[in-house]
């Protein structure tokens, strides 16, 4: 985040860090015990799913604490229109964890908005571990920034005709104070407070650079993808859970072994 400020534990408990080969690559947000919402382009290149993992309950990526949980990924669902009508269109993905996220004051889900939420006059914030300067400096601490929403027509004027915006996209940025999302913030949530509850209205998606104030951050509009999100979360079953299991033959073998060892000890 450019122009972001340090945040504190428990303030954004839905924030997820998605790692690839041990390095932070994208943000995400917790929707429920098994599902994380992020940007599809985080998984765009052909990569082995086993090389990804996720952290929740963490603010400093170098210091896992007692509230931090680590998860392997069971599957990733990419939106069917990803890159279909726009180079970064349909930039939404659902990530299913292999095991259940345990909720606490440090780890909580974010709410999804209603499809007809009025976006005017909302106080919206974004968070992320992305670059903190256009030179590519990265920080290990989670940053936060309040980003005003920018009307679509104004955003399209700023980007010009070469970078067209789809209806499923929305723009946010603080032009005056040079606050913007940057590389590594992708997938992180844009959240707004409505009636004392935080709703996720956007997913960090793309932009032209980070430090050019005339080019705000562009977000996938969560409201646009609500049906797809809900359908997948409701129809895809939870991943199978590994439970301790000992076959009857193995149990007999173990039992015999224990008996023999017990006899030897007596002798």
């Amino acid at each position: 985040l450019l122009g972001g400020e340090l945040t504190i534990d428990r303030k954004w408990p839905w924030q997820v860090s998605i790692h690839y080969a041990g390095f932070h690559v994208c943000g995400g947000s917790i929707l429920n015990a098994y599902w994380v919402l992020t940007a599809a382009h985080c998984f765009a290149r052909e990569k082995r799913l086993q090389t990804f993992d996720m952290y929740v309950g963490i603010t400093n990526l170098e210091v896992a604490n007692k509230h931090t949980q680590w998860f392997e990924i069971n599957q990733v669902i990419i939106h069917p229109t990803f890159e279909m009508f726009h180079p970064v269109g349909g930039d939404v993905a659902l990530v299913q964890s292999k095991s259940a996220i345990v909720f606490s004051d440090y780890v909580l889900p974010i709410c999804l908005p209603s499809s007809n939420l009025n976006l005017s006059d909302l106080s919206c914030w974004t968070t992320g571990w992305g670059m903190v300067s256009p030179q590519g400096e990265t920080g290990k601490d989670l940053l936060e920034a309040q980003l005003p929403l920018i009307p679509k027509f104004q955003c399209q004027l700023l980007y010009g005709l070469t970078s067209y915006l789809l209806p499923e996209m929305l723009c946010a940025g603080d032009i005056k104070n040079m606050k913007n999302v940057c590389e590594g913030d992708s997938g992180s949530p844009l959240v707004c407070k409505v009636n004392q509850t935080w709703l996720q209205i956007g997913i960090v998606s793309w932009g032209r650079g980070c430090a050019q104030p005339l080019y705000p951050g562009v977000f996938a509009n969560v409201s646009y993808f609500l049906n797809w999100i809900r359908y997948n979360m409701e129809t895809i079953p939870d991943p199978p859970q590994l439970t301790p299991f000992v076959s009857s033959s193995l149990r007999a073998t173990v039992s015999s072994f224990v008996t023999i060892m017990g006899s030897l000890l007596v002798l």
Binding site: L108, P109, I110, P113, E144, M233
Partner: peptide, 27 residues
């Protein structure tokens, strides 16, 4: 684990906690 979140949020996709309600509120 927090026990203070009732299952009453209409927008929540979670079965056991309320969404969008951090325990800590920023100033």
């Amino acid at each position: 684990v927090s026990h203070r979140h009732p299952k009453s949020q209409p927008n929540s996709l979670s079965s056991d906690v309320a969404c969008g309600q951090p325990a800590l509120h920023g100033k």
